[in-house]
């Protein structure tokens, strides 16, 4: 280093569990390279125990988050957009480096990620009316069906689209009141961890989103077989691991969304990259009957 030049302070990338940033309990890490193959940073190689801790944190956060008003959840998601916007430049750098795209494309990607949070924020207090119903039963009963969050959802983030793909799958899971455990892109985990820093400063209660980095083949199994996980979004899972994950998921009848194949372009498209029915995939419908006039 030349004289007078400042030595930069590097970031340690850790996990995000229960609102905190712990290292993996296993003490392991793996080297993450950028898109050009240049070593970039060490990421935590999460373990089975980290999965269990993350699920526990997600379950603990479930009553509060699912019990929050839809208006409140909408504002929190909007706050995430605000925080992301404020750190735009940092994300443009990271996405460009992780995905090997130009700064222009990276900027487009980050902007879209911000807009996607805004789009889903608006769904918080609409989904009950769009996906619920009042039912005209043939008898003297007041009858209605309301959507409720499924519970704790395991999310396998898309491998290639490290930020936008993740945001596009994460927002529809949590907007309705689910909490989740995310397995970040194995090869491009760093933007996900930086996103967790945004979430941590966005009024999102700790434990609503828990984020693990590491090897999908190692983390998805324990997540899929965990009996306190109610559903899985395998959107980003490699097809080779799909069957095994769903086999494990059957043990407690998890709802499973299969892998989806979307290109980086697709995630940028509103027609393909955002969908209210992705919210519906992690909703339970509850029908309530009450007699009239008795």
């Amino acid at each position: 280093m030349a004289e007078g030049e400042r030595l930069d302070v590097r970031k340690t990338y850790k996990l995000y569990i229960g609102g905190k940033f712990p290292r993996t309990e296993s003490g392991r890490s793996y080297l993450v390279s950028d898109a050009k193959g240049k070593p970039w940073a060490n990421a935590c190689r999460g373990s089975r125990k980290d999965v269990r801790d993350a699920v526990q944190a997600a379950r603990k956060a479930a009553p509060g988050w699912s019990g929050a008003t839809a208006y409140n959840r909408g504002q929190v998601l909007y706050r995430v957009a605000e925080m992301l916007e404020g750190r735009r430049e940092q994300f443009v750098d990271e996405v460009a480096r992780a995905e090997g795209v130009t700064r222009r494309v990276a900027a487009e990607t980050v902007d879209k990620a911000v807009d996607r949070w805004v789009w889903y924020a608006g769904w918080a207090d609409k989904l009950t009316q769009v996906f619920g119903s009042a039912n005209p039963v043939a008898g003297p009963y007041f009858n209605f069906s309301v959507p409720e969050p499924t519970g704790v959802v395991g999310v396998v983030a898309p491998a290639a689209s490290s930020l936008l793909g993740l945001v596009s799958r994460l927002a529809p899971v949590i907007v309705s009141g689910n909490t989740c455990v995310v397995v970040a892109s194995e090869t491009r985990p760093l933007p996900a961890i930086t996103l967790a820093e945004v979430l941590a400063t966005s009024d999102l209660p700790g434990g609503v989103v828990n984020l693990l980095t590491g090897f999908a083949a190692e983390l998805v199994g324990p997540l899929a077989s965990h009996l306190d996980v109610n559903a899985l979004d395998l959107g980003g899972l490699d097809l080779a691991l799909y069957r095994e994950a769903e086999l494990a998921a059957a043990e407690n009848v998890k709802r499973v969304v299969p892998p989806v194949k979307l290109s980086a372009r697709d995630w940028l498209s509103d027609a393909k990259g955002q969908d209210p029915y992705w919210i519906a995939a992690f909703l339970e419908i509850k029908t309530v009957w009450h007699p009239i006039g008795v």
């Binding site: 005209p136 008898g139 009858n143 029908t287 009957w289």
Partner: peptide, 14 residues
């Protein structure tokens, strides 16, 4: 959930 009733079914009610 059946409130003050039980085992009611209807094709319009999920």
């Amino acid at each position: 959930v059946w409130a003050n009733t039980f085992n009611r079914f209807d094709p319009t009610a999920p």
